[in-house]
């Protein structure tokens, strides 16, 4: 999208996340992030649909009802949900140019995300010990692929958060700092909303 100074003098705004110097008047980076998230819906939609189709194909392996530990997964879901709160508080602090609280909330978000990933590693290990390997059944393959992809997204998010903290400390963030934090936040919240869907469709609704 071409960067044209259409909105430069509009309403006398500065460039503080308002009146971006683009043909849309919006941040191109933010547009690109939303476009990415829209396309990610298709990726996770495919993985969730495949799981839904194959969750009953257990072969000789364990069934979902036999191995899922709903209380444990509920706690890790709650942890991820609360990480969205800490993330939005980081975005809010960043918008106020409050560097200390921005770093604090970003770090707390990363820790909560790491707790979630740790829980997922524990869950995978427990399932494997109970006889559900990646190639045990179509259920196992589709389950590990879906939740593994999601876990990888969380891991990427944690790396982004920690990178952001380091760069923020060294004042090496290029461009509008609050917008960079906001975009990492968008990615993080997306990972959370995907888990909201996975938690219900995969764990809570039995096959």
């Amino acid at each position: 999208m071409a960067d044209v100074a259409v909105h430069a003098p509009a309403a006398g705004h500065d460039d503080h996340a308002h009146g971006h110097h683009t043909s849309t008047g919006l941040s191109n980076n933010k547009l690109a992030m939303w476009l990415l998230l829209g396309s990610e819906c298709l990726l996770f939609g495919g993985l969730i649909s495949t799981y839904m189709l194959y969750r009953g194909r257990v072969g000789t392996g364990p069934t979902p009802d036999q191995i899922y530990d709903i209380p444990f997964t509920s706690v890790s879901s709650f942890v991820l949900l609360m990480s969205s709160l800490t993330m939005v508080l980081a975005v809010s602090a960043s918008a106020r140019d409050d560097q200390r609280n921005t770093n604090l909330w970003l770090t707390v978000t990363a820790l909560l995300g790491a707790t979630f990933v740790g829980g997922q590693v524990y869950e995978f290990t427990a399932f494997y010990k109970e006889g559900l390997g990646f190639t045990t059944s179509l259920f196992g393959s589709s389950f590990y692929t879906l939740t593994g992809f999601h876990g990888t997204h969380v891991l990427v998010g944690i790396i982004m958060l920690m990178t952001l903290v380091v760069m923020n400390n060294k004042n090496k963030i290029v461009g509008q700092k609050s917008e960079v934090v906001e975009m990492v936040g968008l990615y993080w919240h997306f990972v959370d909303v995907v888990w909201i869907v996975i938690f219900t469709l995969v764990y809570l609704i039995p096959s």
């Binding site: 919006l26 547009l31 476009l35 829209g38 396309s39 990610e40 939609g45 495919g46 649909s49």
Partner: peptide, 19 residues
């Protein structure tokens, strides 16, 4: 901006419809 809403929900509804 509503443009962001459209971009996200278009992807979402397309995914829901297709799948």
């Amino acid at each position: 901006s509503k443009i962001f809403t459209w971009m996200f929900y278009m992807g979402l509804f397309l995914a829901v419809g297709v799948y």
